[in-house]
Design a protein around this nucleic acid. Structure first.
Length: 141
DNA sequence: GCCAACGTTGGC
DNA sequence: GCCAACGTTGGC
C-alpha cells in the first residue's frame, strides 16, 4: 500500500515536538474526536506525519513516522472507542511552516487543516506534503 | 428525529 | 478575551 501522509496537532504546552525528540518515541494519545480517530485507525507503519504546534506557534515543526498501528488509548476509559498510534521523530523542519504561510499559499489553502480547523488529526495529500517540505527549506518570516 | 443550549478547540 | 466551527446533550 502506498504511503499516506498526515498532520497531527499538539499544543506545545501539553506535548511539544521537543519532547517527542527527547523521548525518541511516543504514543499519540488523548484524541477524542471520531473523525480524528478514523484517521488514526487508517494509519500504516511507515506513514509520515507533520507535527503541528497549535495555539502557541501555529506552525508545522517536524516530521514523524508511524511505527505502530492503532491500539486502544491507555488514557481512555476501558471499553471506549479511542485509539492511539505510536510515532517516532524523523527530523525537524529546516524552517517551521506557519499557518499563515499555508493560508497564503493557493496550493495549500484548501488543506484539511484550514477547512476544518478543529480537527486534530488530518490527512495531507502527497502534493501538499511535497509542497510543505519544499516551503520548509526556506525561511518565510 | 429535530433543534436549542452548551462545551471545547483553536485562531485572531 | 472574543468568536467561529463543530460536537454533544437533552427536551420535546
Amino acid at each position: 500500500m502506498a504511503k499516506s501522509y498526515w498532520l497531527m496537532k499538539s499544543e506545545p504546552d501539553a506535548y511539544p515536538w521537543e519532547q517527542l525528540v527527547r523521548e525518541g518515541t511516543g504514543i499519540w494519545d488523548g484524541v477524542r474526536n471520531h473523525t480524528a480517530k478514523l484517521n488514526l485507525k487508517a494509519m500504516q507503519v511507515g506513514d509520515e506525519a507533520l507535527f503541528y504546534h497549535s495555539n502557541i506557534g501555529k506552525e508545522c515543526v517536524g516530521i514523524m513516522r508511524v511505527t505502530e498501528t492503532s491500539f486502544p488509548d491507555p488514557t481512555a476509559d476501558e471499553g471506549s472507542p479511542w485509539v492511539v498510534v505510536r510515532v517516532e521523530p524523523v527530523r525537524a523542519l529546516n524552517h517551521p511552516v506557519t499557518l499563515a504561510a499555508i493560508k497564503d499559499d493557493p496550493k495549500l489553502a484548501d488543506m484539511e487543516l484550514i477547512r476544518q480547523s478543529r480537527l486534530s488529526v488530518g490527512r495531507v495529500t502527497p502534493e501538499e506534503w511535497k509542497h510543505i517540505l519544499k516551503k520548509s527549506e526556506t525561511a518565510e518570516r
